[in-house]
Structures are given as C-alpha cells and as structure tokens.
Amino acid sequence: MARPKLDAIDLKILKAIQDRADISNTELAALVGLSPSPCLRRVKMLEDARVIQRRVTLLDPAAIDLSVNVFVNVSLEKQVEERLQEFEQAVRRRPEVVECYLMTGESDYLLRVVVPDLAAYEAFLKDHLTRVPGVASIKSSFALKQVQYRTALPLDHLKT
C-alpha cells in the first residue's frame, strides 16, 4: 500500500497516540477536533496503511529488575545471506535482545541487550551469542546512565 498523504489532523492523531497509546477514541476525537466516528475511521486508515504498526505499554526497567543495558557490536566471519539470516533468527529468539540493527562500518550488527545484572549478561554471552555460527567477534559496552529515551518519533518534518 502506498504511503498516505498525512494532513494536520492525522499528525495530531499520531502525536497523541505516541504520547498515550491507551487514549480512548472519544478523548482522541476531542483532542484533535473531530467527532468520534471520523476519528476512528482515520485511526483505522493509519493502521491499515501501517503508519500505526502497533500500540504498546512501556515498563520501567528498574521496576522489573532489568536495569543493565548493554550495547553489543557483533561481527560475522562472512557477510553472506545465509549467515546474516541465521544470525538474525538466533537474535529474534532471545528476549534479552530488545533491539538489533544491521550496520555499516566496523561491525555487522549492533544489539541492545537488557539484563538484570552482569552474571545474566555473561550467561547470555556464553550460552547463546557466542554459540551462533559465524560470529567472529563480540564487543560489549555497558551503559552507565540513560540520558534520553524516547519511543515517540519526531513528526515536525511532516508539517502540512
């Protein structure tokens, strides 16, 4: 499906649901200046066009004992399609890996791993990541402090 042309109302809807995924349609409609039925139709159109992919609840990592963030650079022995797919499938199976990007530059992948402590990261590394076929090197960096974390994407460049 082609990307829809977004107008000012669509942008208001997107901003509102990024800020508060649990907003009711009635509240959303009032906030963006529509009645509930047209607002619901717009949200449905945005979902059908995959502009809105899903709605989630964000948890406080410290409240659930996942306060260690590790950024992991992984290089593969060979960058052939089969090895890339094998690595990506292995990473998708690991709940500790909350983000994974195929990269340009010195490493092939950048992962963000969340764990409760260093022992849990060591176990993840030894029992899982080092056992993925084709992994040549792993470099880990531990985050000392989260300075900023956003899930809302910027929308200002789409102004109509």
Rank of each mutant, 00 (worst) to 15 (best):
A2H: 11
A2E: 15
R3P: 04
R3F: 10
P4V: 12
P4Q: 11
K5V: 14
K5F: 10
I9W: 12
D10G: 12
L11C: 02
K12L: 08
K12N: 05
L14P: 06
A16Q: 07
R20P: 04
D22E: 15
N25V: 07
T26F: 09
E27L: 08
L28W: 00
A30T: 00
L31W: 01
P36V: 03
P38E: 02
C39T: 01
L40W: 05
L40P: 00
R41E: 04
R42A: 02
D48G: 15
I52H: 05
I52V: 10
R54S: 13
R54Q: 12
R55M: 05
T57H: 15
L59E: 03
A62D: 04
A62Q: 04
A62I: 05
A63Y: 03
I64C: 02
I64V: 05
L66M: 13
N69V: 14
N69E: 14
F71E: 11
N73L: 13
V74F: 02
V74I: 08
S75H: 10
S75R: 15
L76K: 13
E77W: 09
K78A: 12
Q79G: 10
Q79V: 14
E82G: 10
R83E: 14
E86N: 07
E88W: 03
Q89L: 13
A90M: 01
V91F: 02
P95A: 12
P95Y: 12
V97Y: 04
E99M: 11
C100R: 07
L102Q: 13
M103K: 12
G105S: 09
S107Y: 08
L110Q: 07
L110T: 05
R112N: 12
V115W: 01
P116H: 06
D117R: 03
D117V: 03
L118R: 07
A119M: 12
A120S: 03
A120E: 01
Y121R: 03
E122S: 10
A123C: 07
F124M: 02
F124D: 00
L125D: 10
K126S: 14
R131T: 11
V132K: 01
P133W: 00
G134F: 05
V135L: 06
V135S: 05
S137L: 09
K139N: 11
K139A: 10
S141Y: 09
A143I: 06
A143Y: 02
Q148I: 15
A152L: 03
L153E: 08
P154R: 07
L158D: 01
